[in-house]
Amino acid sequence: MKLRLGMLILISLSLTAALKISCEREKLTIVATIAPLGSIAREICGEKANVVVLVPSGSDPHQYAPKPMEAELVRTCDLFISIGKEPFLGQFPENKLGLSLGWSDWINAGVYIRRGNPHYLWMYPENAKIIARVIANNLILLNPENSEYYSSNLATFEEKIDSLESWISLIKTQYSIEGEKVLLGGAHFEPITEILGLNVLGIIIKGEEKLPSPSEIVEIEKLASEERAKVIIALATQKGGNEGRLADQISRETGIPVIYVHGVAIDEGDTYVEFMKYTILQIVSGIQAGRTAGGSSKSISTRPYWIAILILAVLLIFQTFLLARCFKWSS
């Protein structure tokens, strides 16, 4: 009797394991080049697909090189999602077995692109909605039996974006940031400065490694000082590169604080809305620090100076917190 009972238990466990493996195999595989696309895809596919992001969170896509295993994953996945302008796309096989989404799909769907700048197009909340719709439509093509599920997730995501846009409007009003003057290290953050209504006085590096001449740097410094720019916004992954070096140089000459902002979530588990909120709050904190320091004025009183130092210290703690989360998840 005991032997029979034991055998029944073993058979039951084996069937459970087999069913679990079968369910896992039935899931779609989605591969996204970068974390923002992966985050939006997860919100739409939910538990019906496994989402893999190629470029590690907090890394620079320009420095990424796919491994052979990743190239094979791109070839065999059910849905491959890219912006369509990533420099490493040419290293992937063209004969993909599944569906692919890229630049032409976003353009045809009606995403907003300012002056042809593909950098961080997902930072426009309305673009995030469009990207989500395109992903949902393709998931329905791949997996029509779950069409209602994907459509429901899409509706939920769109509601979250509507709430995000209301929150952004509140932040702009509460902190009176609309029209504040800033400098950009590169063109990366044009979308987010536009949705915040900031006045971009200039971009230090216009395009890939198009470094400004010494005379152009002097002109940027002069303009920023005269117009009393509040902050220089630079890409965190470029802190040790030319963008960071030039941003620091201009900051030393003008007294304008620099903030280093991540272009994608440094924790892959962060949702699109979470990433947008902490990125916007970081920029707002930088503007507040610039206001306290008196913009670009070098002759500031002692009290505002120390207040500015305190605000910048809070920014540093915030960035350290984000990096700690990144290391925790990567370990």
Rank of each mutant, 00 (worst) to 15 (best):
G46S: 11
S59F: 12
R291C: 05
S147K: 12
I135F: 07
T254P: 05
K239G: 02
E226P: 00
S163C: 09
A308H: 02
G179H: 06
E274N: 01
K222P: 04
A265H: 01
Y149W: 07
L164G: 04
S213H: 10
P212G: 04
P36I: 06
F318H: 10
S59N: 12
L3T: 06
A229C: 06
F80V: 02
M123W: 05
A65S: 15
D162H: 11
Y149D: 04
L223C: 00
T33F: 00
H262L: 05
D270K: 06
G207I: 04
L223W: 00
T271K: 11
H262E: 14
S82R: 01
R291E: 15
A313D: 11
S163H: 10
E219T: 06
E126N: 15
Y112V: 14
T33E: 01
N117F: 09
A236W: 03
A229N: 03
L141F: 08
G98S: 12
M276V: 05
V273I: 15
L323S: 10
L37C: 06
A247N: 04
L281E: 14
G241C: 05
I307S: 09
V200W: 05
K210W: 01
I204G: 04
K277L: 07
L322M: 10
V218T: 12
E268Q: 14
L142V: 08
G116Q: 12
L15N: 01
S299V: 12
E126L: 15
L198M: 10
A18N: 07
S301W: 07
Q63M: 07
F321Q: 12
L121H: 11
F88E: 01
D78V: 05
T76A: 12
W167R: 11
I283G: 00
P304R: 05
T173S: 15
W103E: 03
L54R: 03
P144S: 13
A65D: 14
L201F: 06
A71I: 06
N127T: 11
T320G: 07
K172P: 01
L235I: 14
H188T: 14
I317N: 01
K2D: 14
V51C: 03
K328T: 13
A32E: 02
Y149F: 15
I287Q: 01
G98N: 11
F189T: 03
D267K: 04
P36H: 09
C326G: 01
L79D: 02
L101T: 03
H62E: 10
L316N: 10
I283F: 05
Y175G: 05
L13K: 08
K96V: 13
D105I: 05
A229P: 03
G255V: 00
G185F: 07
S59G: 04
E208R: 13
